[in-house]
Design a binder for these strands. Structure first.
Lengths: 199, 199
DNA sequence: CTGAACTTTCAGAAATTACTGAAATCAATG
DNA sequence: CATTGATTTCAGTAATTTCTGAAAGTTCAG
């Protein structure tokens, strides 16, 4: 089998990009190939198309599996294992976020917590700890937010993304709304909302 | 000069983390050291404390400068250049996001756009392009959102983060509110808000 | 200008990481 | 349960990246 120019260009670019991240060029290319492939591919076909050794592909697929980024399936009448990426791009982002968190953020948070607990022995330590505390707090905040957002269903998420910065208008709205309920007369029931209770 | 155990542990961890990212262990350690340091440090002091060659530190600082992550300043009565990180952790996140976008996302978007424009020559190409289009759309959406959020001032941002997933409640609120204005009687002026106009 | 203090460059050494082919392991089929 | 086809492991090699020391470059005080 041979790659079309479009697929080849994408695969090559993705390989380069991969190496700016933690993953190797090989792994990046394998993923890119699977991502645009019409059907799941067996390892030997990947090796042939990308000109990697069969064992290299095996390693790469193993890594991608450890990231939960590829699915393994058996096709009827073929003993080989076939691989494909997740179909839903949103799910891919989700998985990526989860894994990166598990591998990079969580260990860092744990180190930060430990170091913040230590008893400082001098002014330098006290300053260092206060910096670490800032970093810890920031990460925790971002993480909690990411957790919450993870839970949204895609439609809500997209709505939110499309709203973008204008969400601030909503925040202001929220800050002003409670006034409305304060004994200023009953409104029609379909708009009867207690914002503070909601939030 | 010698590192305290707290600083040393942080520097070592950050170095390891750095190498999971695109930056080298050295660069990670230099950054970590500057991050917790009470005062700006000159290159030779960094080299001494971290046990790197002076030239290695020079390279590392150059890289950090290219990321806009360190500031260079001159202290009175000292000819050497002194380096420090940005003081505000939010600013650090912002800078990091900007740089990563410039180096990784933008080039990818450009490749995707080009490939989507190509005329497909077969079914495989058509499928590949539709996948690339999905990816392109997703990235654009996330990017636009990030752009918008960048513009918020820190207070608004923090408020938003703290709100987390409950922001959805606000979305629902928005979807229900417009009903209120539709000739159901005048409300008090301080709560007179046209949501659709705001958003 | 000159020289001292500091910084950067760069070619090669050292260390790390990626890749391969051969051998071992595993699994399905008859 | 043996054969065949598929996959993984692993030890060694290749490629890449990181790091160093020596040399060149820069800047500034005198």
């Amino acid at each position: 089998m041979k790659l079309t120019p479009i697929t080849e260009a994408f695969v090559l670019h993705f390989g380069e990009m991969g190496s700016r991240w933690g993953i190797s060029r090989t792994v990046g290319q394998i993923y890119a190939l699977l991502f645009v492939s019409e059907r799941p591919l067996p390892a030997d076909e990947i090796a042939e198309v990308l000109n990697f050794s069969r064992s290299n592909v095996s390693m790469g697929l193993k890594e991608l599996q450890s990231w939960n980024l590829v699915r393994l399936q058996h096709l009827p009448g073929d003993r080989r294992e076939h691989f494909s990426t997740l179909g839903d791009v949103w799910q891919i982002v989700r998985t990526l976020a989860e894994e990166r968190r598990r591998r990079e953020i969580d260990p860092t948070l744990s180190v930060l917590r430990d170091l913040i607990m230590e008893t400082p022995t001098n002014a330098a330590d006290r300053h260092a700890q206060s910096r670490l505390r800032e970093m810890h707090e920031l990460i925790e905040l971002l993480l909690r937010w990411a957790d919450d957002v993870q839970k949204l269903d895609p439609d809500q998420l997209i709505q939110l993304l499309k709203l973008g910065g204008r969400v601030v208008a909503l925040l202001e709205l929220k800050n002003r709304l409670p006034l409305m309920g304060k004994g200023k007369g009953k409104r029609s029931s379909d708009a009867d909302i207690d914002v503070d209770e909601m939030l």
